[in-house]
Amino acid sequence: MADQYGWRLYATDDVMSDHARRTTAEEAPFLHRFMAMDMDERWVNRSPVTMLETFHWFRGEGFGLIVEDLLRLPSQPCVIVEGFRLLPHLVKPLLAVSGHAVWLLPSPDFRRTAIQGRTAPGEGFIRKTSDPERAGRNIAERDHAFVERLHEETRRLGLHAIEADTTMTEDDLANRVSETFLGRRSAPPG
């Protein structure tokens, strides 16, 4: 949509390292505890439930830095903000129109397909653990619980969520998002 309409894209994943550097242990205690852990402490030795409850970005740490960054941007063109750090309960108070936010939530099949499409176990950051397979399972379980939490929170707050599944094409998903944001389907690519 950003390319189609000439909007700016702000991807929260791209600024995570910068945001981590800009915080103190007092401002973001969960983040700083996480940064002090070794890879097994992060991904192998803790249960997925503990990983979910203590993961700094899932707790909203650093969200204020996203807002600060956005306030520094020029008012034009419009900005699309994306990323898992956009927790519904933090975003809702900032919305003038509830349709200006939509959460894309992967179905269980979509999540399985995405996990299988990632690098093989033992590659990437989980390769640095003593048990990459267990780390991968823990992360998958944590992510599943996070998505379930987002489903419940968007429902409870009356916010828009679209379940992305393996039957949807990118164009289908773009059209669904456009319908939410703009009240109309996006033009077919061409």
Rank of each mutant, 00 (worst) to 15 (best):
N138Q: 01
A174M: 06
R85E: 09
T50I: 04
P189K: 11
V81S: 11
R149S: 11
W43C: 04
T169V: 10
I66H: 07
R21G: 11
D3N: 12
H89W: 09
R156Y: 03
L31R: 08
L73E: 05
D18N: 09
R118E: 15
A135H: 06
P88K: 02
F110G: 00
D131R: 13
E26C: 06
N175L: 08
R112A: 15
S17N: 09
L95D: 00
L150A: 12
E152S: 13
V44W: 00
A145P: 05
D69T: 02
Q76G: 06
F55R: 04
G64R: 11
H56N: 04
A140E: 08
S47Q: 02
E27A: 15
E163K: 02
V97F: 01
M37R: 04
R22H: 13
R46G: 00
I126G: 09
D109H: 10
D172I: 00
M1F: 15
R149A: 05
F110L: 03
G124Y: 05
W7N: 04
S98T: 13
R111A: 10
F181L: 14
Q116G: 11
A101L: 00
K92S: 07
P29W: 03
M39Q: 11
R72A: 10
L173H: 04
P48G: 02
A174G: 07
V81H: 12
E179D: 11
T119C: 07
F34S: 14
M39R: 10
I162V: 04
G64F: 08
E133F: 02
H19G: 06
D14T: 15
D171K: 06
A187K: 08
W103D: 03
L52T: 07
E68F: 08
M35Y: 14
L95H: 01
M35P: 10
